[in-house]
Computed example of a mutant assay.
Amino acid sequence: MYEVLSGNSWHVTRDICQKAGGDLIVPSGPEQYARIIGYFKEYLPGGAWWVGIYDNVWLTGRAGVTAEWNAGQPDGGEEHCGSMLSDSTMGDYPCSTPLRAICQIRR
């Protein structure tokens, strides 16, 4: 994993991740999602971090599931881009919101 500490829009951050040889982080399933949650709880400061989900669809094409989202999320409207929140659930925000991010680098 690679942390993008500067706050950028979802699209700019995704471009940064891709230039580094990866993409925004996407869990491959429930086990990896649990590991990502553990990482957020142990290593990352509070706030929200961009992850690889857009309009409730992970970049891999898998739909988001209710258990991954904070209550009332995703709530749509102008909020298309997903982020992991400090409580280890997800919320959606306008994609132009400047947030930090987690990149998943391919090896």
Results as ranks from 00 to 15, higher is better:
W58D: 08
Y2G: 05
G82V: 00
Y43I: 01
T66W: 02
E42R: 11
W50M: 04
W50R: 02
R100S: 06
L99R: 03
I53C: 10
G22H: 03
D15W: 09
R14C: 09
Q32H: 07
P45K: 02
A101Y: 02
S6Q: 12
M90S: 06
Y33W: 15
G91T: 05
S83N: 09
G82E: 04
Y2E: 15
N70A: 14
G7F: 00
W49V: 03
G46A: 13
V65T: 13
G21Q: 08
E42K: 14
N8H: 15
R62V: 12
M90R: 09
A71Y: 13
C95H: 04
I37L: 05
E68S: 03
W69Q: 04
R100Q: 14
E78K: 13
S83M: 06
L5D: 06
Q73D: 12
G61R: 07
P98L: 03
S6F: 13
Q73T: 00
R35G: 09
V51N: 00
I102T: 07
T97S: 10
S28L: 03
A34L: 14
D55T: 06
S28K: 08
D75A: 13
A48N: 13
L24V: 07
E79H: 12
N8E: 14
G64I: 02
E78C: 07
L5M: 12
D55F: 08
A34N: 12
R14V: 00
N8M: 06
G72A: 09
G7T: 10
Q104K: 11
R107K: 02
R106N: 14
G64P: 04
Q18L: 15
G7L: 00
A67E: 11
T60I: 06
L99W: 04
G21K: 11
G21C: 04
E79D: 15
D55Y: 09
C103S: 08
W50L: 04
A67I: 14
W49P: 00
I102V: 14
N70I: 00
L24W: 00
A101E: 01
L85C: 02
I105R: 05
D23R: 10
M90Q: 10
K19T: 11
P27R: 01
W10Y: 11
D92H: 03
F40P: 01
P45E: 11
W49D: 05
I53V: 11
R100T: 01
N8A: 07
I37M: 12
G29R: 03
G91N: 10
R62T: 15
K41Q: 15
I36F: 13
G72H: 07
E31D: 10
R14I: 01
P27F: 08
Q32L: 06
L44A: 06
P94A: 04
R106F: 08
L85P: 00
L85K: 01
I16M: 14
L5W: 12
V12R: 02
I102G: 06
C17L: 05
G47A: 01
E79V: 00
L99G: 04
Y39E: 09
